[in-house]
Write a protein that binds this DNA or RNA. Structure first.
Lengths: 211, 211
DNA sequence: AAAAATCTACCTGAAAACCGTTACAAAAAT
DNA sequence: ATTTTTGTAACGGTTTTCAGGTAGATTTTT
């Protein structure tokens, strides 16, 4: 009963090829097609329909979430499973809004892909354990008072100069403000980002690709 | 002629499992063992030797490059292939310094893994096309002033703790050495890496995927 | 066995970062 | 129009880092 047709879109060819190899061994899967870009995926769907699209969230040219939005509005019967390295809730929520039926973490077990496919084919949804737990906590408002941290524009300027190895004095000269002001900003940023040293600030900035 | 034993270390279980599935189909590969952390890998090697270690560069708890350094100094006959999403030269060079015999990009074709394994088993090296080209360009470039910097094992330990926001005192306690010694190491690292602040050290480490 | 590299440790002094707090003007949001 | 946020600035004091040495013990390499 090889009935299901699957398309995988991930710019990490190596990963999608290996994944395809695994899926092709499953007896309920008819075929697996591999794309490396969103554009390629969109084009492919215009000539051929695939029951399930497995989309990587983090792709170079276009986010998998945007792609999911495009596909889900265009093809009613499509089922979409997102694939991601990170488990931040915001991304998950956006994926759901974009029409995703499932969300898998790359650090989950390979068998989850199989399970997810079975589930979404049956019209259900599938989320990696970590994700479903987080979604639940969020709905029950157990989501610890994690107020969103917003760095102000000026603070960001100063943060970027700190990351550039500028000292307080150099920053004050660059921005034509007092050294005291720079220190105040630094302290405020540290409070907001919950860091205690400049090293922490650098990590914060880099992890969020603020520079 | 199933002779080669392979170990894969990647915190993306899904990827390593799929990759393992592919490799197990190859007739020259005897077995494939999967690890999800650097610690697990180090422990496994203490009880069993694997001819080839395929290591992901960007892992949560410890950089694959640091792991490569540990393994290559401990096991003379080991061959190491790095796996990475990014192709920046600094990271590649750092991998080579750490003892890697190959460097594969995740957006390369799956067959490259097979080729890379054959090559490193024969005592040769293998780099994805994009990488080898960049390395070549770099070598032809008149980058005479850029002598390669070699951080010692101890210095690397200290560097990683600095990046973890540890203060001198905490580092000295962690490693059971004097604060003075830690400062000496820090100064030496700064001289070698041509940086003037801890922030610079963090950038140095991050740019080379050392953490 | 000798030479080189690495790891260890100490010293002094200067510079920079960190901590807690207050305060006011300008700009934005309600 | 008024409350809130943002940007500015200051004070005093503590801790940590940075700079430039010297130097002996232990590994590793040659």
């Amino acid at each position: 009963m090889k009935t299901v047709k699957i398309l995988i879109c991930d710019d990490h060819t190596m990963v999608s090829q290996a994944l395809a190899g695994f899926l092709e061994q499953q007896n309920f899967i008819k075929s697996v097609y591999i794309c490396t870009t969103a554009a390629e995926t969109i084009k492919k769907y215009e000539t051929e329909f695939y029951d399930i699209a497995i989309l990587d969230v983090n792709m170079e040219e276009m986010s998998g979430i945007v792609l999911a939005g495009i596909l889900s509005t265009k093809y009613e019967n499509i089922k979409i499973i997102m694939l991601s390295m990170r488990s931040d809730l915001l991304t998950v929520k956006e994926s759901i809004k974009a029409g995703a039926n499932g969300y898998l973490l790359k650090n989950a077990d390979l068998s989850e892909v199989k399970n997810a496919i079975s589930r979404v084919i049956d019209g259900k949804s599938y989320f990696s354990k970590q994700i479903s737990q987080a979604l639940l906590d969020d709905q029950l408002n157990l989501n610890s008072d994690k107020e969103e941290v917003f760095i102000t524009p000026r603070e960001r300027e100063i943060l970027l100069l700190i990351v550039k190895e500028y000292h307080t004095k150099q920053i004050s000269e660059t921005l034509n403000i007092s050294e005291n002001t720079v220190e105040t900003h630094r302290k405020n940023i540290m409070k907001k980002t919950n860091t205690k040293t400049s090293v922490g600030l650098v990590r914060y900035a880099i992890e969020r690709s603020l520079f």
